[in-house]
């Protein structure tokens, strides 16, 4: 089974985020950048399928040169190859622009299954996965929490968490999946894996290499733009009460009734 996993490099979610003084974006200086959390789960899913059915796991990322560090994390986990699409013309792309680039690159690779994280923890958009499925003409299942392969039928059976229930879907291959964290527990890269990943060549491709026309990606093609970033409104600590249970209950009931007005 040939598996392609899409990888994004994002700020470590544990790290504090500093906004640039002009509010145009985040200050990346000194910021720890890592593989997107959900992409670790996507890579793990790919590796488990490869272990079960053979084939290969190819990682693909779109972004600046530094994205290679996130790709190396996936290689250290055990992926076979990694490709980076990097081009200055990609600056200012919206999510559809990114999806177009990924689609062009994935068309050049054998693929039975494309796996993405359900979202990236930086912009939280959850657009690229399903948009990529559409551009490649593939069926999809998003935010899956369980995955089984029926190789005889050439399908995967997945569980997808929906409001108040679980959808059980049968999706014919080739297909695109985006994964939830409850799907698996990502492995830690082994020391030999890390050493091997360091030596591995990561193929870098430009838009010209892929035959992607510049006007279809980048800032000119973008249909939306981030114009400002601000810290969330500061919440003020309210009243603190340290009394016996009866008094505490009376306070909560009064709050729900008079302030929150839900009683």
């Amino acid at each position: 089974m040939n598996i392609v996993v899409c990888v994004k490099q994002v700020p470590d979610t544990e790290a504090p985020i500093r906004i640039r003084p002009d509010g145009s974006g985040i200050d990346e200086s000194g910021l720890n950048l890592v593989m997107n959390y959900y992409d670790e789960h996507a890579t793990e899913a790919g590796l488990r399928l490869k272990e079960q059915f053979g084939g290969s796991v190819t990682l693909i990322g779109v972004g600046p040169e530094r994205t290679k560090e996130a790709l190396r994390t996936g290689l250290a986990m055990g992926a076979d190859e990694a490709i980076l699409v990097s081009d200055v013309a990609l600056l200012g792309s919206d999510h559809l622009g990114t999806a177009r680039v990924l689609a062009a690159a994935i068309k050049t690779l054998p693929h039975d299954l494309i796996i993405c994280g359900k979202l990236s923890t930086d912009d939280n958009a959850a657009i690229v996965g399903p948009a990529l499925a559409e551009l490649l003409g593939l069926p999809q299942a998003t935010a899956i929490a369980q995955l089984e392969v029926d190789t005889s039928g050439g399908t995967v059976v997945v569980h997808r968490e929906v409001e108040g229930g679980v959808e059980v879907l049968e999706v014919p291959l080739p297909a695109l999946l985006t994964v939830e964290r409850s799907l698996n527990e990502p492995r830690y890269p082994s020391l030999p894996g890390i050493m091997k990943a360091k030596r591995k060549e990561i193929k870098t491709m430009s838009l010209a290499d892929l035959g992607v026309e510049v006007p279809s990606v980048g800032a000119t093609a973008a249909k939306s733009a981030l114009t400002r970033l601000v810290p969330p409104p500061k919440r003020q600590a309210g009243r603190m009460i340290e009394e016996d249970a009866e008094k505490a209950v009376a306070e909560i009931v009064a709050f729900l009734k008079n302030e929150a007005k839900v009683l």
């Binding site: 912009d123 939280n124 981030l226 114009t227």
Partner: peptide, 16 residues
Amino acid sequence: TRPMYTRKTIGTVVFS
């Protein structure tokens, strides 16, 4: 407007 960076920031996004 939308929460970004795990709600550590709020982004303003303008549609074309």
